[in-house]
Design a protein around this nucleic acid. Structure first.
Lengths: 248, 248
DNA sequence: CGGGCCCATTGATACAGGTCATGGCAAGGG
DNA sequence: CCCTTGCCATGACCTGTATCAATGGGCCCG
């Protein structure tokens, strides 16, 4: 008897991908919008945001090499960004959850140097960058917000460098799980039960590990009663120990 | 007989750290300034830039925990940025050469989360961030330039993640050497002979390696006739092979 | 001038994680 | 229903890099 209800504890809204929402109504606005923006400023931002039909699993939001036009906000679902070097080796550069902004690495060039795909059905807000620039000239709060968003992205990447450069496989995986856990908590979802939308291969790629190692560590964590793992469904049984492991 | 002349091929200017320069005169303007800025716009930027006395080796430009006020441009010398986690482990996050901007990770917060020290005597331009924000509202080119600078920082960090996560010690060191080489070339310095201003420990820390490994790889590169290494003085003997190693 | 310190190098050894290979399970398609 | 395919798990083995330890050179300072 398959249970049609996802374990992801959604609120009353019938479909998380529904159209026609405005920034003012969006459940994610506290995450992706500058809190400092006044109501009429939100409206002005809202007017430049484009919302298309949801992206299906494996659908590209943008591709490396194509023209950079916009940055994007996740309204629902999960996005993976990655780049491919000239030897064809893929590098996963990030996983983006609802309320988070991606595509800011494209700003430096006229063409994208990385790609973004949906890991599950996902609704995306597209924010044309030249319009965002114009609006930022008029709304100092918005300009500041984007500077801060980009700064945060830099900080995240630096943390990832430290994680990969200095920590063991166990510490890396624990840290990723806790990162997703806290980001879920910010979205008012459970911080101990969630579905990992990405494959083991993606996790390993992101963390600088092989699939086998990721798999073994999941096994080890289960044996140590830190986690309950059922394919992509994760339950954190011992948050404290996991945090200790991740030295957070 | 010690040779007082540094191997770094400086141009005629008697002292690279001299005061009283303006952005318009600065040899590094092509690197750190938006090329698109008009002359009078450069002057307006110039007026907010603060130039103090040079920083000596090991002097801090800013410290983690102190109030974030400015971003900085290197006019001469080399700056190392790093953060320290709660276990006291240092993570080197970057080396900044003349014409490069650092401190952008501070924008996201009111206080710095990383520190910056001079690796050698260095002249620094301080750019108060709130004044930069104001000016950016008036100068669209400047706003764009800073968005692009930050985007480039993100890209660099992502490349570093890939380097550390996917490449061997040899590949990592080769890539760092080539990065410094090309950045020197941009400053019209030799791309095959230069002085590494940072210690082996800093290099290892940055690349996610131990000092011993860095030292061994330097030895290996010498044996393979890729490099001539004399303490911090580096001569690249076989640029092609090094590039092949770094898969660039 | 000598002692101490920092930095770099080099060697011996250990081990975490990579590589290679096998097998299982679930989903989808003919 | 069986066959294929993709994803994950697990075992055996190997190797690159960390770790531990010892040595040497340069430099500062008493």
């Amino acid at each position: 008897m398959p249970n049609p209800v996802s374990t992801s504890a959604m609120t009353a809204s019938p479909c998380p991908h529904r159209q026609g929402v405005s920034c003012g109504d969006c459940r994610m606005k506290a995450l992706c919008l500058p809190l400092a923006l006044e109501l009429d400023q939100v409206e002005r931002l809202d007017r430049i945001v484009q919302r298309g039909r949801p992206f299906q699993r494996d659908e590209y939001i943008y591709r490396a090499g194509t023209e950079f036009r916009s940055v994007y906000a996740v309204r629902s679902g999960t996005i993976k960004t990655f780049s491919v070097n000239d030897q064809g080796v893929e590098q996963v550069t990030g996983f983006y959850l609802p309320g988070e902004i991606f595509g800011m690495d494209g700003i430096a060039h006229t063409n994208h140097i990385s790609s973004a795909v949906a890991l599950e059905t996902s609704s995306i807000c597209e924010i044309p960058f030249n319009r965002l620039e114009e609006l930022s000239l008029a709304l100092p709060n918005l300009q500041r917000h984007f500077f801060q968003l980009m700064s945060r992205e830099i900080i995240n990447d630096q943390r990832l460098v430290a994680l990969i450069g200095k920590n063991s496989a166990e510490e890396r995986l624990a840290t990723l799980l806790l990162s997703i856990s806290t980001r879920n908590a910010q979205r008012n979802l459970s911080e101990v039960r969630f579905r990992l939308p990405m494959s083991r291969a993606d996790i390993g790629n992101y963390l600088g590990l092989t699939v086998e190692t990721v798999s073994r560590i999941f096994g080890r964590f289960q044996k140590q009663r830190l986690l309950k793992v059922d394919k992509k469904e994760i339950e954190i049984l011992d948050l404290d120990s996991l945090q200790e492991l991740a030295n957070i």
